[in-house]
Structure formats: structure tokens, C-alpha cells
Amino acid sequence: MNGVERRKNVRRFSILATFSVLILIVFVISMNTGFSRLSPLEVFQTLFGMGTEKQELILFEFRLPRIVISMLVGAGLAVSGCIMQGISRNALADPSILGISHGAGVMVVLYLSFFPTHLDVPVLFLPILAFFGSSLAAALVFGLSYEKHEGLLPTRLVLTGVAVAAGLSALMTVLSLRLSRELYQFVAAWLTGSIWGATWDYVLALLPWIVVLFAFVYYKALVLDVLSFGKNVATGLGASVSKEQVKLLAAAVGLASACVSVSGGIGFVGLIGPHLARRIIGPNHKYLLPASALAGALLLLTADTIGRTILQPSEIHAGIVVAIIGAPYFLYLLARSNH
């Protein structure tokens, strides 16, 4: 038994290491691509402080923060999706499908329509505003899918989520019609998931949320495992099911809001990241959570890099690139979950 366990751990470690190496490779590629071309050698020279001023500006002030943001947002959304899938026992649960990202969006648009003076939304304030909106959406969706005797109903959750997402999307569009042209464009870009807040300020605004919430959720990995057996078995094992579900859901909503407030409505990362990770590393959250984070980071970093390069000099928003991959993947999951 111990031999098997040890072999399993080696395997899990190699999987996490492989993800990290892949991220590193895409990271290097991403540093090298963009509107102004820098050769790999120039990138390395600049990274070690031997580049020109212009090269330093491009790398440190434009590319690096954007890369870091993509990775943080990807990881945060994937972990958020992983939690939601665990507590609802539905592989289709993710912050954008359940309308939770849209709750954040409505809040941001509302803010802009009441304080439209300039786009300089207070950076640190934005995640809090977004959290408020997505909490309302989450309370609505999860509240409507909760049945007293059975706990969360997995199928009803996704159906309710899709309906709420559609409603909130429409609301956002209506609200943004009242905005100035400039703000309207901002909202439109936000909706499709441009990584717009790509400065170090946003990295600093995002990082503590991701770190603290991930640490909390990781500490709860065992509880998350037990919750994924459903209400009856989990209660029988001694978990305070509703209480733990609410705590973990709050963490998932917090992660999603923080991410969405700098990246806009990026869908599917919270769906594909954890699903991919689960297929490779299994359902144990102690390994699944970090694997989801890495898969999400890799996915969004790759999508953003593709979006920046494929149609140069114009850019495709990372959210659109992810959706092009994500939509078929979602259909595939849907077809699979039918049997």
C-alpha cells in the first residue's frame, strides 16, 4: 500500500512540475512576442538589467505585468471553478456559467454610470465592488438551487445560473447604453474579457486576494473532498455541510470577483482548468486545487499570448480566444454528462 502511495505521489509531483515547465515556456514565448519585437537574447539581456531604456519600458511596464495578471486571473478563476464544482457536484459549474462574473460586471457598469467622470476607477476599490455584485448573484443562484432536504441540486444550479447570467448580461448592455462612447467601449471590451488592467497597480490589487483565498481554500481541501460526496454522506462523516458550503462558496466568489474586476468577463477558464486537472491528477483536492490553478494560469497565459500575436497589429481579447476553445469543450462536457 505504501509503495503504491509513493508512486502516486511521484506521479502527482511530476504532473505539477510539467504544468510549471509549460507555464515557463509560454512565459518566455510571451515575453518575446508582441507589437514591438524583441529577440530572446534581448529579453534575457533586459531581464538581467542590460537592456536599453525602451526595452526595459516594454518588458517591465507593459509585458511583464500583463503576463503576471493573466496567470493570476487564470489561476484564480480555475480555483474558483474547482470549488464550485466540488460543492455542487456538477462539472459544469464555473463563475461565468453560473452568472457570478456577470454580477460583478453589473456592479462595475452601475458604478461607471453613476460616477462617469473618468476611467480611473480606484484600483483597490474595484475588487470590493465586484465582490458585492457577484455575492448577490451567487446568493440568488445558489439560493434558488438549494433544497432543504437534499442540499444543492446540481442540475438546477446550472440551469438557474445560465438564466441569471443571461439576465445580467442583458442588464449590463442596457445600462451601458446610457454611457458615453468612451465608457461604452470600455464596457464592451470588459464584457468580452480583455485583460485591461495590466499594470503593476492591478497586480498588487489582485495578488493578496488570490494568495489569501487560495491559502484558505487549500486548508479546506479535505472538507472539499468530503463535500463532493453530497450532503448525506458528508453529514454522516461529520462535516457541517451548509456552513462549510457557504464559507467555500464565499471564497470562490471572492476569487472570481477579484479576477473579473481586472480581466472582465472571461468565461470557460473556471470550467476547463479544473476539468483538465481532474482528468490528469484525480479528484483529491489537495492536488486538484494546485493543479487547477496551474492549468488555469497556463490556459489564460496561452490565450492572451495567442490573442496578442495572431492578428498583429490588432489584438483579440483573451476572453474571446478562451471562448473559441471553451465553447466546444463545454458542449463536449455536456454530451458526456448525459449518460
Binding site: R89, S228, F229, N232, V233, G236, R278, P283
Partner: peptide, 13 residues
């Protein structure tokens, strides 16, 4: 300890 009717385990466990 209770074993309920028709429990389900996550895929792959």
C-alpha cells in the same frame, strides 16, 4: 456511521 441508499463517489476516486 451511516451508509445512505445509493451514494455516489466523484469520478476517478
Amino acid at each position: 456511521a451511516i451508509l445512505p441508499q445509493n451514494p455516489t463517489a466523484p469520478e476517478g476516486m
